[in-house]
Every structure is written in structure tokens, then in C-alpha cells.
Design a protein around this nucleic acid. Sequence first.
DNA 1: CTGCCATTTTACCGGC
DNA 2: GCCGGTAAAATGGCAG
Lengths: 91, 91, 91, 91
Amino acid sequence: MSLQSSAKDQLRTIVSRIERLEEEKAALATDLREVYAEAKGNGFDVKALRTVIRLRKLDETKRREEEAILETYLHALGMDKVEPEGESEAA
Amino acid sequence: MSLQSSAKDQLRTIVSRIERLEEEKAALATDLREVYAEAKGNGFDVKALRTVIRLRKLDETKRREEEAILETYLHALGMDKVEPEGESEAA
Amino acid sequence: MSLQSSAKDQLRTIVSRIERLEEEKAALATDLREVYAEAKGNGFDVKALRTVIRLRKLDETKRREEEAILETYLHALGMDKVEPEGESEAA
Amino acid sequence: MSLQSSAKDQLRTIVSRIERLEEEKAALATDLREVYAEAKGNGFDVKALRTVIRLRKLDETKRREEEAILETYLHALGMDKVEPEGESEAA
DNA sequence: CTGCCATTTTACCGGC
DNA sequence: GCCGGTAAAATGGCAG
């Protein structure tokens, strides 16, 4: 056998965890599909709906990209790693 | 405005539900990535692991069909029946 | 043999065409790498550069998404399929 | 402004060159997609075709290593040596 | 049944 | 030289 018995156990555990998580994800995908189907039943255009969702996600992506490049520039200028100046929690 | 206010409320609700579900899905995707990362840290080959997961959910019949087609193509190209220990040079 | 000899020839042709195109693509990837390397040599921050490129692509993506949703709405209102009235692109 | 005007010009040049190369790459990607689509239209199994291409560029040694690891995992999970003609259902 | 879109997987590139 | 992250390719699922 090429795997120690402990490794085999580990492998089985890993596989189980993965399959469990994938099941949950699949369940959410089903929920999503149902929401779209229901929306369609109420007269909404599903394609437009999807486009709206995509646009909203795109806005967020762009916002993050802009922050990323700002940080890169600050870094290039040696101005990054500035401490947030005050914590929200009691340090 | 082209949407009745009740339709607008419905739309908002739908968008919220969808984005909520997508967030949860994203969280699961993160968990999954962590499991793979942890497995890798414990010395497992992530790519092989993914293949195992894939094979486990692949119906046996489909699996054989896929293999059969692949073999046909490899054969047509003279790439099948690779000698188990042969050398590539000076054939 | 499971493939007609004409099919075998077709297969070989297809494989050749694909491999040729992939070679060309790989060559372009090399060129790209060189451009980045040269830029780095001239003092540019490669990471920032990549982010700039990404942002510019994102802008275009968003523009397209916006057009897509506009079209969807026009379609929903029965106003689509309007002939382009000459050429639309360029500038 | 934080960049000398010469640097700005350089930057513009670099960005142009990169975007030009990426355009060409995208064009090749389109060509590739068309070849696969055409092959599909002629009755070839695209997935298998892709596998063939992949195997052709995979070094033989690496190929064997990958297979060996996969088999080890399948064995550990009791999934190896699938009987060549067994039925899963009681016909 | 086909085509399109989203997701997932793979490979590359840069940084440590 | 290895690891992590980012972008590209590929597969699978959904809608029309």
C-alpha cells in the first residue's frame, strides 16, 4: 500500500468534508434557481435580472480594483502600512 | 418611471435574496478552498484530489464512454498502447 | 478500427491546426512577458501596471454590460431589432 | 503630477503595446474556439479532443506520475480496479 | 438540442 | 525554489 493508514484516514476525511460542502453549495444553487423561477412567474425578465445582478457585482469589483491600485501607488511611494490611527476595539 | 412601486419593491426583494444566496455560496467556495489548501499543507496532491472527487460523482457508464472515445482518438493518432516502460528515443 | 480513414485524416488536420494556433498564442504570451520585463527594467511597478490594464478592461466590460441591459429593456418594451442605420462602430 | 512627462509617454506606449498583444491573443483564442466548434460540427467529441491535445503536450514522465498518484488515492478509497464489465444494477 | 453564461479548474507570473 | 495570487481555459448547467 502506498499510503500510511493514517494518511488514508485523512484522505477519507478530506473527501467527506469536500463532498459535504459541495452538497451545501448545490443546495444553494437550487435555491437561487427557484428565486429566479419565482421572479419569472411574477413577470420579471430573468435575463435582465441577471444582468442587473452582474452589474452590481461589477461595480463592487471596480471599487476594489481602484482601492487596490491606490494601495499599490502608496506602497510605491513608501506610504503604505500606515496604521489605521485608532482601533475600533480595545487593543 | 416604468415600474409600479409594488414591482419596484418586489424587485428589491428579489435582488436582495439573490445576493444573499450568492454570498453564502461564495462563503462555501472559500471553505472549500481552505479544505484543499489544508490538504495540500498535509502533503496531498490537490490536482489528484480534485480528480478523485470528480470521478466519484461521475456515473460509471459515462466514465467508460469518455474513456472509450479518448482511446479511439489516441489510436487514430498512433498514440495508444503506450509501452509501459519503453524509451522514446531511437525507435 | 473505430474511425473511418477519412475521419482519421480530419482528426489529424484538426489537431495540427489547434497546435499551430496554440504555438502562436504562446509566442504572444512570451512577447507580453518581455514587455512587462522591459517596463520593470525602466522602473515601472509591474503589479500596478497589471492593475491599470485590468481596470481599463473592466471599464470596457462595464460599458458592454450597460449596453446589454439597455438592449434587454428595449427588448422588453418591444423596441429592439432597430436596424443600425449604417455602421455603428469606430471611434 | 507625480510622473515626469517622459515617464507618462513611456507608460502610454507600454500600455498600448500590452493591449495590442492582448488583442491578438484574444483573436487567436477566437480562432481556436472556431476550430473546436467546426470539429464538433463534424461529429468529433470536443472534450476528448481537448484531452488528446493536452496529452500530446504533456511530458510522458509527468503523465505517469500523475496517473500513479491518482491510482494511489483511488486505491486508498477502495475505488481502484473497477471490474471491466460488472453491472451496477440487478438488470 | 444548441448556444450562452457561470463556475470551476488549470497554468502562469511575481514575490518571498 | 516554493507559495500565493491572478488570469485564462475548460467544463458543466440553464435558458431559449
